[in-house]
């Protein structure tokens, strides 16, 4: 037994010598990761399963078993709501605001991370301060402000508040701060302008953070509820969370329809995440650091 503990410690320094322990460790790791994944996936699987049941009765508690699966709930969903229009609206707004946030956010992040100008910390704190007042309070003045310019119930009103976000700027600034300065100093000596350093050196190196922001920006636009609720009245401008919220009233007990709506709302973000994930993991393969 004492021998076992000695060999158990040694592989840390010399991984090649303890294949059996390493095998056990890996098995335990996999078991843990798989069990965790199930715990994390369960609510989504349950949503999916409930959406293909015939009655959407939840009284028995969540289950992953379903007899006679049917797509009836999805038909009801698409019959009740102009789903294609709604999804197109949500998608358009999410794409535009995500692209805008990537551009405005990475530019501001570069400014804060790489330029020394008077009042930089104060201005950065002011940027952060925009995250500190709860949305529930801002929507009312913003609504009044928009109506003054007759902009309520337009795509503009839907989009304008989300073309820049201090969240994204902060995220990208932190990523840029960990890019070695030697890289842009070398470029400056070669005569490169800030725009060139930003575009050709810093941006490619913070690709993982840009990918992460893509996911978060898309998600926050896609799930945005309170602001569209207040600013949008025309059914043809409705976004997905607004449409789904009308379901809760109409189908109080028909959870299969509500869950079908949830699936429709989750899948696009999951797809965006899967695309972005490859870049989040892109790694340092392309840094040019030696």
């Amino acid at each position: 037994m004492p021998d076992a503990t000695v060999t158990a410690v040694r592989p840390e320094a010399e991984p090649r010598t303890g294949p059996r322990r390493r095998g056990f460790g890996r098995a335990a790791l996999y078991a843990g990761v798989i069990a965790g994944a199930f715990v994390m996936l369960f609510p989504f699987l349950w949503t999916l399963v409930t959406s293909i049941t015939a009655d959407g009765n939840l009284s028995g508690g969540p289950t992953l078993l379903v007899e006679n699966p049917t797509l009836e709930a999805y038909r009801t969903l698409f019959d009740t709501l102009p789903m294609w229009r709604i999804v197109a609206n949500s998608f358009g707004v999410a794409v535009v605001s995500t692209v805008a946030q990537l551009v405005t956010g990475s530019m501001a992040a570069y400014g804060f991370a790489r330029l020394r100008f008077p009042g930089r910390n104060v201005i950065f704190t002011l940027y952060l301060a925009t995250l500190m007042v709860p949305l529930q309070v801002l929507v009312v003045p913003l609504f009044i402000q928009m109506s003054r310019f007759d902009l309520n119930d337009t795509y503009f009103a839907l989009l304008a508040p989300s073309v820049a976000s201090a969240f994204g700027i902060f995220l990208l600034k932190q990523a840029m701060e960990s890019v070695p300065r030697e890289l842009d100093e070398a470029a400056t000596i070669d005569g490169a302008s800030h725009l060139r350093i930003y575009a050709t050196i810093v941006l490619p190196l913070v690709r993982p953070a840009l990918a992460a922001l893509t996911v978060f920006a898309f998600m926050s636009s896609w799930n945005n509820f309170l602001w569209p609720l207040i600013v949008i009245r025309s059914p043809e401008l409705m976004t997905l969370p607004l449409g789904l919220s009308t379901l809760h009233g109409q189908f109080t007990t028909e959870w299969n329809v509500v869950m079908a709506g949830s699936v429709v709302s989750i899948l696009p973000i999951a797809v965006v995440y899967l695309f972005a994930q490859r870049h989040i993991i892109a790694g340092m393969a392309h840094t040019g650091l030696k």
Binding site: T104, A160, A164
Partner: peptide, 17 residues
């Protein structure tokens, strides 16, 4: 670098604040 984000944040978050 700051104006593209500063202007919308000013108009749509700061003014309502």
């Amino acid at each position: 670098f700051l104006l593209p984000s500063g202007v919308p944040l000013l108009l749509f978050t700061f003014v309502p604040m």
